[in-house]
Design a protein around this nucleic acid. Structure first.
Lengths: 338, 338
DNA sequence: TGCATTAACGAAAGCGGTTTTGTAATCATC
DNA sequence: GATGATTACAAAACCGCTTTCGTTAATGCA
């Protein structure tokens, strides 16, 4: 490895000076600076990030805890997209991402805070992390800048971001009503996620405000996956009076509901309307294509990145909760009824 | 930050000893070891990865260059899955992943090798990297262990891994023949990727060996995306004699082909059979569901991980090319004809 | 009892940078 | 031309951990 000392010797200056050109300090003459830079590129010099971290206590990396696998329904296709746009923004500022593995090894640091400190990350992004994780409280108290997505973690330097689940759901309910639907069932979330909770709230509020009938058999729940949507719909089909539309808290559950309907010879989008939430890639491709509430994934990633950059930049940046607008995407799975 | 010195002072031993218990050296008495460990956990001590990297020249991270966006057709849904299973395996060995951002900033190291050295990664995974990247040659020559996926990069310590594209394609062709298809068109890859090339090879070889008719108008190409498949199929529909089946080098192109067919009132899977490659999640959900050649994503990730772990462990591990078996998934988009 | 081993621990020199402080030389100012 | 301010550079301590090489004390053996 070629070090700062090698450069210094070749250039006939001190390591200090080399370091200074590396960091753009002003007190280096133009001539010296040029010479040093030339030698650096001649030797293909690369500063060691580890050494720099050690000295500065900054690593230019942001750590990411990304729980996939779990609940592959909501998570999988969706969160990767927000991560991608997040990466683009922070990457533009020179940060690389450290993707923490979720394999817990004995004798290895465990818990968000410990692992973040271990790796000296400058900030943290939490994505797909369950609300129940015991490490969250410690993290909220810590001085580590963190932004979480779809998880209502607020702390001394912890902001969070999620779609306007309440508003999106209410818009969806109005949309259904405008299409003549008054008997609307709901397939929600038994996992206790914050987005799931808000969507349920939106459903209930809408029922009240729009003066729609409430029936407890019309409230089912699942875990965001296709099969849970399938099963919920199965159960729904048993009740004495059927709704004309069902609103699902995730697209995957809506797709599962499709299947349950088709199995009993009913056509989704004609016999019973189905609406989803998320607008995953699949939504356009299923038959009938899925009318749904779109979460703006790219925007979420971008905003999360900006927020985290600010938290990292200013010690006193107050934590925020950020809400991202949703949008109704009209396709074929909701029909108008008289 | 609490350091090894703080622990040492509290325990009444030298920093050396603390370091030794940290690393499991044998020359520490049971009593001392226990005491030190207790104090560590009392103080919530976390060793600094940066300091350790600096001292040992190992970082316990593997770097990942992941080009998404580009060619979102093949890439997107597919490669994330292999990355996930890769992460699980290396994570189990204590490695975290460093996801390099592809935003090139001026004044920042560029090129695979430079960035890898900058971050002191112990190994590298290349995924979705175009064959034409100028940094590849340097990387192949370097001493950095690297495994690439779907990219035929071989070097002093560089192995690569890809599906059995040739075999998979040939199996697909036989499958089509067994279903009575002799007039088979091909939508391939104009990008020059290695998998694309092998699939085309498989097509041509099969034509010869199975004694099937070759027509140059039956060879189209695209870039793995849906729209390119759509356009290729459009073009194909113009030719004087239509094939009875078309084999596409990616599922997304097959889905694009569906659309082109439907636009002219033809039913994919009935009027013209369509077969894809990859078995992305979508394949099961489109109508008709897509008969395709499955790439075993989880297996690819796992094998890539094992290979990289070996390359990192042994200086003299010879580079290998690994081939992962494919499998035909029969669904509805191919029909039997007389 | 004397000697060679072995077990347990510590001193100190790195690893490759950054940063504070200092100093010599140049410059502007009156 | 003496004084103070600037400019350009360097010495050296430090960041937190590893590792080599000693050293001392305890142990084994004859």
């Amino acid at each position: 490895m070629t070090t700062i000392y090698d450069i210094a010797k070749r250039a006939g200056v001190s390591p200090t000076t080399v370091s200074k050109v590396l960091n753009g300090y002003p007190d280096v003459s133009l001539k010296t600076r040029g010479k040093v830079q030339r030698i650096m590129s001649e030797l293909g010099y690369q500063p060691s990030a580890a050494a720099r971290s050690l000295a500065t206590n900054r690593s230019m990396t942001v750590g990411v805890f990304f729980q996939d696998h779990v609940n592959s329904g909501l998570r999988h296709p969706f969160l990767h997209d927000v991560l991608a746009s997040f990466k683009d923004v922070v990457g533009g500022k020179g940060y690389d991402l450290l993707l923490f593995s979720d394999a817990e090894r004995e004798n290895f640091p465990s818990g968000f805070e410990a692992r973040a400190k271990h790796r000296d990350v400058d900030g943290l992004l939490l994505v797909g992390v369950p609300r129940t994780d015991p490490g969250l409280v410690a993290l909220a108290r810590s001085r580590i800048p963190v932004v979480s997505i779809d998880l209502d973690l607020i702390g001394s330097r912890a902001s969070y971001l999620m779609s306007d689940n309440l508003g999106g759901t209410r818009a969806a309910m109005s949309f259904l009503l405008n299409n003549g639907h008054r008997k609307i069932a709901f397939i929600g979330d038994r996992l206790g996620t914050k987005p799931g909770h808000d969507r349920m709230l939106g459903y209930q509020q809408s029922l009240q405000e729009l003066d729609l009938p409430f029936r407890s058999e019309w409230m089912l729940d699942g875990d965001f996956t296709e099969v849970s949507g399938y099963e919920a719909m199965k159960k729904l089909l048993q009740v004495s009076e059927l709704p004309t539309a069902v609103f699902c808290a995730s697209d995957m559950m809506a797709i599962g509901a499709f299947r349950a309907l088709q199995e009993v010879g009913k056509k989704p989008g004609q016999d019973i309307s189905v609406m989803g939430f998320d607008d995953i890639e699949l939504a356009r491709y299923v038959t009938p294509s899925l009318t749904t509430v779109r979460q703006n994934k790219e925007e979420m990633g971008r905003l999360a990145a900006f927020e985290l950059l600010e938290l990292m930049a200013r010690e006193d940046k107050p934590p925020t909760v950020i809400t991202v607008d949703t949008e109704i995407v009209v396709r074929e799975s909701v029909c108008s009824i008289s």
